[in-house]
């Protein structure tokens, strides 16, 4: 590992200036479960770590029926999926955040880290995209909001400018008649990177779909939304036939690469399978 400097920021302003002064090789440190591994393996050039876990705005989960859910970007995952409001209203966030790594990793790893690491296979990303989570960003130019679905620009790349970082993640209040679900396929039963992952979100009214959002991970250079599925589903009543059409659209939208984690054929097929499975669960949740 190369030698580096560690700095603990205690306010948003302090973190912004540390990052700005640190230049290209300054990195935000949240749980470190991506960053420390990458630095140790010399896969990333890091000279300054700016620890953001001691900035109050970045830690904790709060919910109000009026304004929705706010998750501090550096909140460890166990606090996210262990939160009573998250458990009650956002099951897809629980599903995604509770499979990242194992118990030890979840004591450290954060949604902000998963988001900013920007892996096409990052597990919480498709859960957040489907439910239309918004990343709240601070930087030298002030603060701004970017929907998670618009956050990624390439593998490991995102919209953050020099000196910017994510403060929290915001999700709209839960409404009855809506439901989300998330699943991934991995060859083993733990400690694996998704071959494909899929988040879905459905809103139903009188048995017909009023909103549908499906996001797929590990099937393209970034996680993707599948707008074609929204078009297929919105305004329709759910039945096997229409779900199969949605699944076909998911397979169609997937443009994966072939690598050691999965083949093109496998990934396109699994995109359909997971879409079908998660839509079924989301529908059930929306109706309950």
């Amino acid at each position: 590992m190369q030698s580096l400097t560690y700095q603990r920021a205690t306010s948003i302003g302090e973190a912004v200036s540390l990052l700005q002064n640190g230049g290209d090789t300054a990195r935000v440190l949240a749980g470190g479960t991506d960053l420390i591994v990458q630095a140790r393996e010399r896969k990333r050039d890091v000279s300054l770590l700016v620890d953001v876990k001691h900035i109050p705005e970045l830690i904790g989960v709060s919910y109000s029926p009026d304004t929705g859910l706010v998750i501090g970007a550096a909140t460890p995952l166990y606090q996210v999926y262990g939160n009573k409001d998250v458990k009650e209203h956002y099951p897809s966030i629980v599903e995604a955040s509770s499979v990242i790594g194992g118990t030890a990793i979840q004591g450290r790893a954060s949604l902000g880290g998963n988001l900013c690491n920007s892996s096409p296979a990052g597990d919480s990303l498709t859960a957040m995209m489907a439910i239309n989570a918004i990343a709240h960003i601070a930087g030298p130019q002030g603060e701004r909001d970017v929907p998670v679905e618009d956050f990624f620009t390439g593998p490991g790349r995102n919209v953050l400018e020099a000196g910017e970082f994510v403060v929290n993640i915001h999700i709209a209040p839960h409404q009855s008649g809506t439901g989300g679900a998330w699943q991934r396929f991995i060859p083993r039963n733990e400690m694996d990177i998704a071959v494909v992952n899929c988040g879905t979100y459905l809103a139903l009214e009188n048995g017909s779909v009023t909103n549908a959002r499906v996001a797929l991970g590990a099937v393209a250079a970034t996680p993707i939304m599948v707008p074609a599925i929204s078009e297929i589903l919105i305004g329709q009543a759910l039945n096997d036939e229409i779900i199969d059409m949605a699944a076909d659209a998911a397979s169609e939208a997937a443009t994966p690469i072939e690598d050691m984690r999965g083949s093109v054929k496998q990934r396109k097929h699994l995109a359909g399978v997971l879409t079908k499975r998660t839509l079924a669960i989301a529908a059930e949740r929306a109706q309950s």
């Binding site: 199969d244 076909d248 097929h269 529908a283 059930e284």
Partner: peptide, 10 residues
């Protein structure tokens, strides 16, 4: 159809 025989929930 390529997405399996699944349970046909609907």
């Amino acid at each position: 159809n390529g997405h399996g025989t699944g349970e046909g929930r609907f």
